[in-house]
Amino acid sequence: MSLLPALLLAAQAVPELPPAVPAPTVAGHRERTRGDPLEGFNRDMFSVHQAVDKAVLRPAAMGYRTVVPKPVRAGLRHFFSNLGEPIVFLNDLLQLRPGRALRTFGRFTINSTLGVGGLIDVAKGEGLPHRANGFGGTFAYYGVKPGPYIFVPLIGPTTLRDLIGGQGDNALLPVAVGTPFDTWQYQVTQGVTVGLDTRAEVDAELRALFQGAVDPYATLRSVYLQNRASEIATLKARGRGIAAPDDIQLDELDDPGAQPAAPEPEKKP
């Protein structure tokens, strides 16, 4: 799972959320948002997540940040991230990118040895930063569409494609390696550590996102889907050029005031 989605995933807690807005209706019919056919269900799940976050997840994450020293948190973050590099490597290969796969392999090797089992990210300083990849990205690379947007409590915003891809990412080590990755003790330790760390790391960003939102559910959905679309576009561009604000967004800039029928409110201060 890549970083920013993961960031946005783990974490929603804003004490002063505006009250939930009832579903929009147009002429008595519920209006469906493109890409979110499960909106009613998703909004309920979002509310559940927010309640759990406020009561348990955020306080626990803030406690984790206060109690556990920064170098230890960074070490654990690097350790679990390093264990994910074989998944990145496999998906680099599946996307027919041997050069990228080789760099991922080099990164994993360096950090597993010189980086003391992955605790220290030595490779980053050697020009081999972490580059997220996973089965969701591979599905997208081969043309699988995202499918419906889904909000899952404790997991966060995702799409059907990426939810299935994420399950594949999570299953790889337990299936391919077995012990200790298939034990519940490892699964719980990894899940809790990564979950709390991610939640703590994104707190400021998430708070800012929700504080500027009229409808936090819709804002998170929009930001998540835009970011994911950009990641997929970058994957498909295969390293050609910098990621560009997508041309799809041209459509978003249709100016209703530009229609001749509409009065032009061009009163400049």
């Binding site: 929009p24 948002t33 929009s222 835009q226 990641e231 990621a243 604000p245 967004q249 978003e252």
Partner: peptide, 15 residues
């Protein structure tokens, strides 16, 4: 380079 403020606002305001 990924998240359009206007697209986000539009989603935010629509409901």
């Amino acid at each position: 380079n990924a998240i359009s403020q206007l697209a986000t606002r539009r989603a935010d305001f629509s409901r």
